[in-house]
Simulated scan of single mutants.
Amino acid sequence: MKKLVLATVVLAMTAGFASAQVVRLATEGAYPPFNFINDKGEVAGFERELGDEICKRAALECTWTTNEWDSIIPNLQSGNYDAIIAGMSITDERSKVIAFSDNYYPPTASAYLAASADADIKTGVVAAQVSTIQAAYVAESGATLLEFPTPDETVAAVRNGEAVAVFADKDYLRPFADESNGALVFVGEDVAMGSGIGIGLRQSDTELKAKFDAAIKSMKADGSINALIDKNFGGKGLKF
């Protein structure tokens, strides 16, 4: 009887360990309000709160790490983590190499932010973050593309005169415009790009994708994603 009880306990513990799936989430940590590093050195922002809730609903144990943007997809493919939640737009080009969850943020406009209203965004030097859909757009627009590893460097390039404008997600650029007292202004027309923002996964991780999709759908249905957008974007973010 003791052997039977012991075997039952061991079996139960083994089953418990097997069901405790740990998912490693990666973000950039430099793209507020989507993601940033707070004063405690922790990942924070809209995607941190969203990711934690998705993991809770999917019954997953999730950990967070940061990775530079230009190598974030290669390191996913190499197995250094299991998913990317970093303000990444869903595009046909990216979908050739990785899979995406359902979008958790609607298709967002990209915009030009410049130091003057007459900035030459058609043929001048325009800054954009490396390996982004905005950088690809500028490269084909006729302007001279100036790429930087991080998004804050693209804004700095406009302020110090290296570029006439920066082209990026308008949701990212809006706080810089609002806080500049008129020193930085939006110019030209907004450009609609991508199919929204989603979680990036390896194409083989179909089971994990299904769990993420189910959690995201439930958050859309009960309004909790919109609530997080309102909270983190100051009421100015796009909602479902």
Results as ranks from 00 to 15, higher is better:
Phe148Pro: 01
Trp64Gly: 06
Thr123Ser: 13
Asn38Ile: 08
Val191Tyr: 02
Glu179Arg: 11
Leu238Arg: 13
Gly161Arg: 02
Ala139Phe: 09
Ala12Asn: 09
Val158Ser: 00
Ile216Cys: 00
Asn75Asp: 14
Asp39Ile: 10
Phe176Lys: 15
Ile197Cys: 03
Ala177Asp: 03
Asp178Asn: 06
Asp169Lys: 13
Glu61Gly: 08
Ile98Trp: 06
Gly45Cys: 07
Asn67His: 11
Val22Ile: 10
Lys236Arg: 10
Glu53Ala: 02
Glu53His: 03
Ala163Tyr: 01
Lys239Gly: 06
Gly182His: 04
Ser101Ala: 07
Ser19Leu: 15
Lys236Ala: 13
Ser224Phe: 07
Val187Phe: 12
Trp64Val: 11
Glu153Trp: 12
Ile121Asn: 01
Glu162Val: 07
Thr123Ile: 09
Phe46Glu: 04
Asp169Ser: 11
Glu61Met: 09
Lys231His: 14
Arg48Phe: 13
Lys236Phe: 13
Pro151Arg: 06
Ala227Phe: 01
Asp169Val: 04
Gly51Asn: 09
Lys236Trp: 11
Arg24Asn: 05
Ala215Asn: 07
Glu179Ala: 12
Lys220Ile: 15
Leu146Pro: 12
Tyr137Asp: 10
Tyr105Met: 02
Ala177Trp: 04
Ala139Met: 06
Tyr112Arg: 00
Ala128His: 04
Arg24Glu: 00
Asp70Phe: 12
Ala143Trp: 01
Arg174Asp: 10
Ala114Asn: 02
Ala117Glu: 12
Asp82Lys: 04
Ser89Ala: 15
Gly161Ala: 00
Asp152Ser: 12
Gly223Arg: 02
Ala127Glu: 03
Ala15His: 03
Tyr112Val: 00
Ala135Ser: 11
Leu208Thr: 02
Ala15Gly: 14
Gln21Arg: 12
Ser180Ala: 14
Ala163Val: 06
Leu60Phe: 00
Trp69Val: 15
Ala192Gln: 12
Ser204Glu: 14
Leu50Trp: 10
Ser218Ala: 14
Arg159Ile: 13
Val125Ser: 09
Val155Cys: 12
Val22Thr: 13
Leu113Tyr: 13
Ala156Thr: 13
Val22Pro: 04
Asn35Ile: 07
Asp120Gly: 12
Val155Thr: 05
Asn160Leu: 09
Phe34Leu: 08
Gly87Pro: 05
Cys55Glu: 08
Ala139Ser: 11
Ser71Trp: 10
Asp178Phe: 06
Phe46Gln: 07
Thr66Arg: 03
Tyr81Asn: 01
Glu140Ile: 03
Glu140Leu: 15
Glu47Asp: 08
Ala127Leu: 01
Ala127Asp: 02
Val5Leu: 15
